[in-house]
Simulated assay, not measured.
Amino acid sequence: MFLSREGRRFTDESTEMRHGHVFREVSYQHFPVQPMNIVFDETMRLAGQLSPGRDVLPVGHMVLDEGYEWSSDNQAEIDKGWIVKADTLAELAGKLGLDPAVVETSVHRYNEACADGVDHSFGRNPETLAPVATAPFYAVSGPPLLGWSSGGPRRDGHSRVLDTAGSPIPGLYAAGAVSSTYSAAKDGGFHIADAFAFGRVAGAHAAARATAGD
């Protein structure tokens, strides 16, 4: 379950994690948009590694540059302090700097939803509900994460950056990830292709301006 910085559950945790926006509450939006504490119990800890292996998701500095392999039972990461461990929810709350009563109430209400098979608070799919009930308890805390960005300033056919009125800004060009043509389809070197193509377009236009003395 996800708890806010105040120790309260604030969303449907089963929302799909994906590139770009997630459709929720009748609109597309970034998710998550706030720091949070991911709280789970011993059953979840033993269910498998929290971070996918390189065969599933070969990205990230630790994986690619340092060759880090996440432990299958998450114990190594607990020992490193990356995952906070406590024998009780109150103790876990204290280690997270949260009000124990608020955390205990949040977990209790969530566990009731699991028992009832209905999430009245956020409408989470009943098939994904599993209680946080078996000690010890764990938490991973952190801010929203952004692996990369796609898009930025608008540009025209000469790769010139446009101002808010849609007019070219003299001498300012964009190419590659900063103003990508490919939007969410950013894997496979698309930004590199954009940089090559529109970098050449921008260079040609800038050279022409220089020749003309603009």
Rank of each mutant, 00 (worst) to 15 (best):
K80N: 10
H19I: 15
R124A: 03
E66T: 10
H158F: 03
Q34T: 12
K186H: 10
F2L: 15
M36Y: 04
R155L: 02
A202Y: 08
A93H: 00
M36R: 10
Y68L: 07
E77M: 03
A76C: 04
A174T: 05
G166V: 01
A76E: 10
N111T: 06
H61P: 00
D73A: 07
A130Y: 14
G97I: 06
E112D: 02
A135S: 03
E16G: 13
F122D: 08
K85N: 02
D99A: 11
G53P: 02
D194H: 05
S4L: 09
V178F: 00
F10L: 05
R9Q: 07
G67C: 08
G166P: 01
Q34F: 07
A208F: 00
A206E: 01
D73Y: 09
M36C: 02
I83W: 00
W148R: 12
H61S: 09
E25W: 11
G20L: 13
P100G: 04
P136Y: 01
D99H: 07
E13H: 09
S72N: 11
E6Y: 02
L98A: 03
A133C: 06
F196A: 09
Q34H: 11
T15E: 06
H21Q: 09
D87W: 14
E112V: 14
G142H: 10
V59W: 12
S121E: 09
A207H: 07
G123M: 02
L145A: 13
L129H: 07
P32G: 13
G213N: 05
G81Y: 05
P52R: 13
G48M: 09
P144C: 04
G7H: 12
E6L: 08
E112F: 07
W148M: 12
R54H: 08
V161G: 01
F198H: 04
D99G: 02
P100T: 11
D116Y: 12
M17I: 14
A93E: 00
S167G: 05
V33I: 14
G188H: 11
G157M: 06
A47V: 12
L50T: 08
F23P: 01
G67D: 04
V33D: 08
A139E: 02
N125A: 14
R200M: 09
G48Y: 08
D194C: 03
V26F: 09
F23N: 05
F2G: 08
Y173R: 07
F198A: 00
R54A: 09
A204K: 10
K80F: 08
H158S: 04
H21P: 11
K85G: 01
L89H: 05
A113D: 00
R155F: 03
D187L: 13
Y138N: 07
Q49I: 09
R54T: 11
A208S: 06
C114T: 10
S51L: 15
Y68E: 05
F122H: 13
L145N: 06
P126T: 01
